[in-house]
Structure formats: structure tokens, C-alpha cells
């Protein structure tokens, strides 16, 4: 494992911890899209089916279990926790995420590494992860104001994507047979979706001002 991959995994983990911190400390999930969180839970559940069939390393197994458990915990909190549920911006979170699920599933039936149950769900999870942030970005755009922890949550998620691209470049150079086109192309699409957010994040950071997205 190279340093970029590790940094990517850690920023991914930090983003989830920041989100959990926001929900537990403020008992509020305002500004957080439940639809994006449900998509991430589905991403992890379908991608890590290999927990039962392939063992890579203790690190991989533990991280997979942490990602599954934390994403389910966040969805549970936003749906079931009485105080947290009240703060959910339901009327702003109207992205039709079922279309994303259907489109990604169709694509995974056509474009996969092998036409098997596990490989189709793996491809599905990669495609779905690439677009899962969309409901969250739409919600932020609509509400305009972004609180600090929510801004940092999306920032760390974007950093995770950026580190994974560096990881692929590194692996492409150092490993003779490295070719993961499905993951790489989807990853680049996913990172590009953050570009706009990053621009405004850095502007606000440079001016030491509150993060605001244009309407």
C-alpha cells in the first residue's frame, strides 16, 4: 500500500468521523443529505460482499467493517433518533436518488469486469459512489449557508478522492499490470463533481470567511 492510498483511506475515515461528530455533538443533521448517506450505505454493502469470499489483509477487513457500520449508524440516526430527525432538511433534500440507483445498476450490467453476481455488484458500487455526493451538493447549493463541520465533511470526502487518483497514478507507474479502468474513470468523474465545491471552499478559507455557495 502506498502513501497516497493510505492518505485517501484516512481522509475518507476522517470525513465519516467529522460527520458522526457533527451529529452527536450538535444533535443535528441540518445540511446533511439523508439520500447521499443512504447511497453510501448501499455502496459499502454491495462493494464489500467480498468480505465473505476474499481476504486481503486485516487492515482491509477492519476498514470495510468500519465503513459499513458507520454508514448504517448515520442512516439510522437520521431516520430514527428523535432529536436528530427533527433537524433533517427534508424539504431541501429532494434529489431523486432512485434514478441514480437504477441507472448505475443498468450500467453495471453492461460494463463490468466479469458477468458474475459479485463483479456486477462491485461495478454497481463503484458507479454509485461516483454520483452519491450529488444529493448532498444539491442540498448545500439550495441551503446556501454551510456550517463548518458540514463543509469539512465534504472537504475531506473530496480529499479522499484526490488522494485515490494520486494512488492510481503511482500504481500505474510502479505496477506492471495495473489497469483498473472502471474504478479510475469513475473515480475521476467523482472527483470532478467536487471541483466546484472545492473552489468555493478555498475562496472562503483564503478570505477567512464563512463558506457560502452561490444560489
Amino acid at each position: 500500500m502506498n502513501i497516497f492510498r493510505f492518505a485517501g483511506d484516512m481522509t475518507h475515515l476522517i470525513s465519516i468521523l467529522v460527520l458522526l461528530l457533527k451529529i452527536y455533538a450538535t444533535k443535528s443533521c441540518s445540511g446533511i443529505s439523508l439520500k447521499t448517506q443512504e447511497l453510501y450505505a448501499l455502496v459499502f454493502l454491495t462493494r464489500y460482499l467480498d468480505l465473505f469470499t476474499d481476504f486481503i489483509s486485516v487492515y482491509n477487513t477492519v476498514m470495510k467493517l468500519v465503513f459499513i457500520a458507520s454508514s448504517l449508524a448515520i442512516v439510522w440516526c437520521m431516520r430514527m433518533h428523535r432529536a436528530v430527525r427533527r433537524t433533517y432538511d427534508k424539504e431541501l433534500d429532494t434529489f431523486r436518488h432512485y434514478f441514480l440507483i437504477a441507472a448505475c445498476f443498468l450500467l453495471s450490467l453492461i460494463l463490468n469486469e466479469k458477468f458474475t453476481f459479485q463483479e456486477i455488484f462491485w461495478a454497481f458500487s463503484i458507479y454509485l459512489e461516483a454520483v452519491a455526493i450529488l444529493p448532498q451538493l444539491v442540498l448545500l447549493q439550495r441551503s446556501g449557508n454551510v456550517d463548518n463541520l458540514t463543509g469539512q465533511y465534504v472537504f475531506f470526502l473530496g480529499a479522499y478522492r484526490a488522494f485515490y487518483i494520486l494512488n492510481w497514478i503511482y500504481r500505474y507507474i510502479t505496477e506492471p499490470h495495473f489497469s483498473r479502468w472502471i474504478a479510475c474513470v469513475s473515480g475521476i468523474v467523482q472527483t470532478a463533481l467536487y471541483a466546484d465545491f472545492f473552489y468555493y471552499y478555498f475562496i472562503s478559507w483564503k478570505n477567512n470567511a464563512k463558506l457560502q455557495l452561490p444560489a
Partner: peptide, 10 residues
Amino acid sequence: DPQPEVHDEL
């Protein structure tokens, strides 16, 4: 028929 590589990333 090439086998897919093991998915070793998260």
C-alpha cells in the same frame, strides 16, 4: 479469458 483482479482497494 482473463480473470478480474482481486479488488484490493476500499
